[in-house]
Amino acid sequence: MATLATEADLVARIGSLTADQSARAPALLDDASGMVRSYTRQQFTAATQTQTLRSQGGLLRLPQRPVTAVAQVVAIGYNGTPDVTLVDWWWDGTDLIKLGSGNMVINLPERWFDDESGWPSTFRVTYTSGYEQTPDDVVRIVCSMVLRCLTAPTLVGGVTSESIGPYSYRLESAGVGTAVSMSADERKDLDRYRPKAGTITTRTY
């Protein structure tokens, strides 16, 4: 999957990269993009995916945003019943699908109507989501994470100590130039992309 920022984005912020920085940038951009995706649980890049979701009160909340199109909703059969492609569902234009009663589908399995527990609870949804261009604030955060590594004064960790009169301190630090990290402020800025609540994703294809 493409990184959420590019070397050109780094150059736009720092002016130029040395040969060593340019050689290290791709891996660090990949690491930072992965960390942002993991924290937000969002892919950001526009793509079509099929996910298996569990309904809540007849509603399916799509986890990847922004949703730009919904192509198909399939009720997943169980205990020998077949999967059924549904036609009575409605997408609200954002991230929510409302399921119908299934009455618009011919020859539904009788087990679905035998009792309340017979109706499927998991559905396979094919939909398109993501941005054609990564949001500016996400690009900024990824670049900030990478530039902290590239401009770190040292690649290795160590011990820093200093004495001022009768006072002294000792500080052990990791190699800040070897791995990207996300600050508390960056997490706070990314929180708006994190799903607050919704349908459980059980499988992604």
Rank of each mutant, 00 (worst) to 15 (best):
T6H: 02
D9E: 12
L10H: 01
L10R: 01
A12W: 00
I14R: 06
G15H: 00
S16L: 11
S22L: 10
R24F: 14
P26A: 06
A27R: 15
L29R: 03
D31V: 00
A32G: 00
G34E: 02
V36W: 00
S38L: 11
T40I: 02
Q43P: 10
Q43V: 10
F44I: 03
T50S: 14
T50I: 07
T50G: 07
L53I: 09
S55F: 06
Q56F: 08
Q56N: 15
G57P: 07
G58S: 05
G58E: 13
L60E: 12
R61F: 08
L62N: 04
L62C: 07
P63A: 08
Q64H: 11
T68K: 13
V73A: 03
I76V: 15
I76M: 10
I76R: 08
G77P: 07
Y78D: 15
Y78W: 15
N79R: 12
G80C: 10
D83Y: 04
V84N: 10
V84T: 14
V87Q: 14
W91P: 02
D95L: 05
I97L: 08
M104I: 09
V105Q: 12
V105A: 11
V105T: 13
N107Q: 07
L108H: 13
P109T: 04
R111K: 14
W112V: 06
F113W: 15
D114C: 09
D115L: 02
E116S: 13
S117N: 11
S117Y: 12
S121C: 02
S121F: 06
R124D: 04
R124F: 01
R124P: 05
T126A: 09
T128C: 10
Y131L: 01
E132K: 09
E132R: 11
Q133S: 07
T134R: 01
T134A: 06
P135Y: 03
V138W: 00
S144C: 06
S144V: 04
L150S: 05
V156F: 11
G158V: 09
E162V: 06
S163Q: 14
I164N: 13
G165R: 12
P166K: 15
Y167A: 10
Y169D: 14
R170D: 06
E172C: 03
E172T: 11
S173C: 12
G175H: 11
S183T: 01
E186A: 00
R187T: 00
D191H: 00
R192E: 00
Y193T: 01
G198K: 02
I200R: 10
T201W: 09
T201C: 12
T202V: 08
R203P: 07
